[in-house]
Nucleic acid binder design. Sequence first.
RNA 1: GGGCCUGUAGCUCAGCAUGGAUAGAGUGCUGGACUUCUAAUCCAGUGGUCAAGGGAUCGAAGCCCUUCGGGCCCGCCA
Length: 626
Amino acid sequence: MTLRLLFDEIRSSLKQISDELNYPQVDFEVSEASRSEFGDVSCNITFLLAKNLKKRPFEIAEIISKEYRKNTGKFVKEVTAHPSGYVNFVANFVELNNSTIKSAAQKKYGDINVGKNLKIVVEHTSVNPNKALHVGHVRNIIIGDTISRILHKAQYDVRVLNYVDDSGLQVADIIVGFKYGGFSPEPPKDQKFDHYCGDVVYVNVTEKYETDPNLVEKRTQVLKELEEGTSEIAKFANEITRKVLDEQLKTCCRLGVTYDCLNFESQIVRSNLWKTVFEKMKLMGIVYLEKEGKNEGCWVIKSADEEDKVLVRSNGVATYIAKDIPYAAWKLGMLEDPFYYKKYAEQINGRVLWETTLEKTGNKLDFTGEKVITVIDSRQSRLQKIITKIMSDFKSQAEAYFHLGYESVTLSGKTAKTLGVDTVGKQMQMSGRKGIYVNADYILDILGVKTYEEAKKRNPELDELSLVEISEQVAVGALRYAMIKQDLDKKITFDLTESLSLEGDTGPYIQYAYARAARILEKAEDEPQFDVSFTDLVTKYELNLVKAIGKFDIQIEDAAKNLSPKIIARYCYDLAVTFNAFYEHVKVLTAEHKSLINERLCIVYCFKETLAKALDLLGISSPFRM
RNA sequence: GGGCCUGUAGCUCAGCAUGGAUAGAGUGCUGGACUUCUAAUCCAGUGGUCAAGGGAUCGAAGCCCUUCGGGCCCGCCA
């Protein structure tokens, strides 16, 4: 709590002054000055008052700043009226430094209570268990994981779910491949099972459908058996999907992603939750039995501005969206929970991963939330909109169910070409079916090779184990940062060559700033002593760094309230840029006198800790050496 | 035909929710800084009709309307 203190103080002083002057109440804004020459903080109150008072903003600014100067408070040093009309403030850095550095040294720095311990569910990943994860899936995983980390920091009670569609068409496809397409259920040596299923079996079976109608028929049969779940085929499929899932989760683990519970679609289907929900929807008048037209005999959801959506076909069989509705209602805790939970695994950070089971041998646990965030790319917006509407009717609460959409990842023309598709330079959508994608493990591997070489070059004395660890951390940092730094509604055009860049606005750049700070502290003769008053920090590099550190909780609040992970990414980058400027221009270990060395060591320490916390929200590790 | 997203420097993107000061980064290109607290860095230069047009406003990249370009979605498939 630091820059916030400065803003709050200015806001309340201005409010008081405005009241004393009998000015009308206006919703003014206190924000960071857009340029350093304007000071540290600016306020637009004069523009809002100008019309009402029939005075020019500058005149009002002069009156207000004159009043303000009578009592500048704790954190403000100077108040000026700018000819443009703004009221500008210069911070009292002795106080601000003190307050910022002392709070940033705390372990819980940045924690902010936005969530008030509200139970919130974040569902992400949810990749069909018939293939390996590709870079498109990675965007979903990283958005979901980052959001759940941010919400956790903002004191929501977060539960992370991964929905496993183990009874869908895509799983049926690889089962057809194993049973009728001649593919061995054992992958070739050295190939991960998920890669084998996706890259080889799935792609080939899909191709064979074109020429073999018999195989297409088999698929329909397999799909039916999967939903029933009793046949030999279904048991075999269960083994296969679990093996694939296991491999997918290894990739997630590599990315630093963990979950609380795996929800299997097959069990939702068999739990009969659908029946309950369907009856409820009938009672509430959400679904109608269509009497005429092309949907005659179907149960449909009426939509004012779009086509009606069929929920139950005229033959009585529910469509796939009917699986999503009970699941959504379950996530919101609106149904009696039919599941028991058994331990699936213990994850890297010690967090236990549970899975749903219908067998009564498991525990009774609660993975539902007052609010639910479902991370799915925006191609599914229409369906998610329908589900959101139904859930808001069920819960009579508009925002209980929230679809967090994002634009998908496409391949650059160049990268498509390396995969054997000539798009005349244009970017293209990835396709699992056609085998046109870049696997997540692959990109991590080649990034790892590059980061290993770089790390070794710079740190020849480090042992093999450390080098491997650092290179993996940096590779993951590069990928995670690339996936989160831009806005959710902008598509990412993935290019193999460009993704290997480790300079500029990248994860490694930020990690490098951390390593530099760590190195200074490591080489320092003494530990930083915080029991001083920080009066020697006067250069713009030092003050800017303190200010940047002081913005942490404001950024977390912003990111949590707007569900916008990129805000934290930008913050990390800004923090790193500010530190690098400090590093280049200000000497720490060879500063003029002892107390200055100590004060600077304190800022470096606070920077390092704050950056590590911010990077942790992005799931990016902070290496001590690079 | 309908719906959602998008258009800012050569390229990739911030800024838009909540209008206000000279529109910012990265990358590219040009030049400069390493016997160092690690150059995965820093400094300087280069580069913009904020897609176009109109409207409301004292004031628009931002708000409203129209047009144009790009992407995605719209099955009794999943």
